[in-house]
Simulated scan of single mutants.
Amino acid sequence: MATREREREEDAFEYEFDLENPFTSPADEPIATLLDAEGYHSTSVSAAASDARRDAAGFISKVSVRFGVELAVHPRVAYLALNYVDRFLSKRQLPFEQQPWVPRLLAISCLSLAAKMQRIAAFSIADIQRDEEFIFDAATVQRMERVVLGALEWRARSVTPLAFLGFFLSACYPPPRHPPQVVAAVKARAVDLLLRAQPEVKMAEFSPSVAAAATLLAATGEVAAANLPAFQAVVAACPFVNSEKLRECGEVIAAVCGVGPGRAAASDDTPVTVLGHNRSASSASESDWTVGSVANGGGDAKKRCMGPPSQWG
């Protein structure tokens, strides 16, 4: 019965959506709808899960940096994938310490789901693992996808900071006083800052609306500094933006992205260093799921595992 119900849920699951417009139909009060949804989609990664989150973020970032163009891993796919990781970790506890390769499986499964949601046909589970010691087959990843979707209650249309950019920009840069190219430049820089800052575990502490406001303030300070006081006043007048959280988020963004007074902007081709890419995102474990090895093209053995355990579902 449970299997048939799950299959029906999968059949009803709709892929593809716009991160900036997460709803399928327009609402009479879009900002109210977003605020209501962000409360449901907000994440809070516990200290116990922070290492797992950091490892998953490191793998997602590495895939995006190394294989982004080749494997169509667009930065927004990576962003959505890590959002799924955060939402999952805020609701489920998994045996990360006993099975340290679990964050890798979680990251791969969330990347696969995000690629489906963004209609990335060229995405390949096998290719993103081509240089890894420990690999997971497609069936294992699909099983983990169902575990993730179950934890998300099949709500894959995540409300992220990207969905709030339009609201703040229209409020702070009303036409025709501001040239479209200025607004576009501020938005582009804000998106870049969001993508860079998200892997930092502390970013999971902030609501999407606060993260959007903080990155737009940072972007305005860089791109259109003369407009910063007016922008700050508009954001301060928003009753749903907590001023203390806004300040804290701004400090995290400044530290991670190297922006703000006296700081040089981070290079576009430099990955965020706080991820610890030199760490092993998941060490090899031969318990529970390990069923043998498979030889790659160079003759080296790769560990392969199958799962996840039924109790995860």
Rank of each mutant, 00 (worst) to 15 (best):
R119Q: 08
F134P: 00
A214K: 07
V182N: 03
A224R: 03
C257F: 06
A266S: 14
G39V: 03
A284I: 12
F231C: 12
G150F: 00
A114Y: 06
P95L: 01
A266L: 09
A48M: 04
G313I: 00
E200C: 14
G250T: 09
A236Y: 10
V182S: 03
A265I: 04
E145H: 00
V259E: 03
V159S: 06
R104D: 09
S209D: 13
T140C: 10
E9R: 13
E244C: 09
L194W: 07
S280V: 14
A163Y: 06
E5P: 02
E145T: 01
A12P: 03
L19Y: 12
R130W: 01
V294Y: 07
R92N: 07
E38S: 12
L162V: 14
A37T: 09
E20F: 10
L71W: 04
R189N: 01
E20L: 08
N21A: 15
F23S: 05
A254H: 06
P176R: 11
S112Q: 07
D127M: 11
R247W: 04
G258N: 09
F67K: 12
Q93V: 08
T24S: 15
R8L: 06
G166F: 01
D86P: 13
T43P: 09
H178F: 15
A184F: 06
T215A: 10
A295N: 06
W154D: 02
R104W: 09
R4C: 07
A184H: 11
M144F: 08
R146Y: 00
D36H: 14
S243M: 10
R146C: 03
A115L: 04
E20V: 14
C249R: 06
I135M: 04
G299T: 11
D51G: 13
V272M: 11
A190F: 05
A37W: 12
A171E: 11
Q93A: 10
L82I: 15
A197W: 08
I128N: 07
A211H: 14
G68Q: 07
P174I: 06
L246H: 12
F231A: 09
V274N: 14
A295L: 15
I108G: 07
F123H: 08
E132S: 13
G221H: 02
R87G: 08
F13I: 01
S61N: 08
D269R: 12
A211P: 13
V191F: 04
T273V: 10
L162W: 09
L106I: 10
Q311Y: 13
I135P: 00
H277R: 12
P271Q: 05
K302H: 07
F13A: 02
A107W: 04
L217P: 10
